[in-house]
Amino acid sequence: MTQWSGSTQHPETFDTAPQVVAVSRAAGHDFSKPVCARIHLLAGLGVEGDAHSGVTVQHRSRVAADPTQPNLRQVHLIHAELLDELVGRGFKVAAGDLGENVSTRGLDLLGLPVGTRLHLGETAVVELTGLRNPCAQIEAFGQARGRAGLLAATLDHDAAGQLIRKAGVMGVVIAGGEVRAGDLIEVEWPPQPWAALEKV
């Protein structure tokens, strides 16, 4: 496990309080998820009515490898700042397009350590397990929207040359509840020592 050396940015360093800006779900294994008014998180499972909800892994490639693996990817969160960046580079993307369940703003998701708990809305709590590993489906989506290079645009490198995966984070549901756009996000930091998020 990699020692955490991520962001020390606390929510108060952003211009606005961290919040949910959109929520999405899809019953089928589609790449994108349509935005909806609200989603309901189920403890230990994920998003009610979403194809990736379950105690064991639900992503098809992982099911094929070992269907008994625990589902560490129950909820997918993306920072809306990434979507802003991609739009600024000419890509046609919006909330839910990259398959996320929750789009956030005002929070450095990628810089949080493993085990961080995000309190969403009144009762829901999601514990971060790792990074989403961008795949070829992202590139196919971008090409279908008229522009190649979307996969590369969701990757970067730090000053030491280490790969940065920017396509969001994954988590498991610790406490259930309803989540909707406009809900505030409270960050609960895990006990130290902290470990950096890695692909999961």
Rank of each mutant, 00 (worst) to 15 (best):
L45M: 09
V35P: 01
E48R: 12
L131T: 07
D108S: 15
A148W: 04
F91D: 05
Q19P: 07
G146M: 14
V200H: 14
T68D: 10
A159Y: 06
V126C: 04
A153H: 08
R105Y: 13
L197Y: 09
K92A: 06
A140V: 14
Q137Y: 13
R62L: 09
D50C: 04
W189T: 08
A22R: 02
A195T: 08
L163I: 15
G130L: 07
V169E: 07
A64I: 07
P70Q: 12
K33T: 03
R105V: 05
G161L: 05
G146T: 11
R38T: 11
G177E: 10
L118F: 08
G171L: 04
G168I: 02
H29Y: 02
G121R: 12
R117S: 10
L155K: 15
E186M: 06
L86D: 03
H59A: 14
G88L: 12
Q137W: 13
V55F: 14
G168Y: 07
L41C: 06
R132V: 15
V102C: 06
E198C: 06
A51Q: 07
L131A: 10
I164G: 01
P134I: 05
R38I: 00
A181I: 04
L197C: 06
F141E: 09
A181G: 06
V47C: 04
E81N: 08
G130R: 04
H10L: 15
A124P: 13
G96C: 02
E139M: 00
H79P: 12
N133K: 12
V87H: 00
T123R: 05
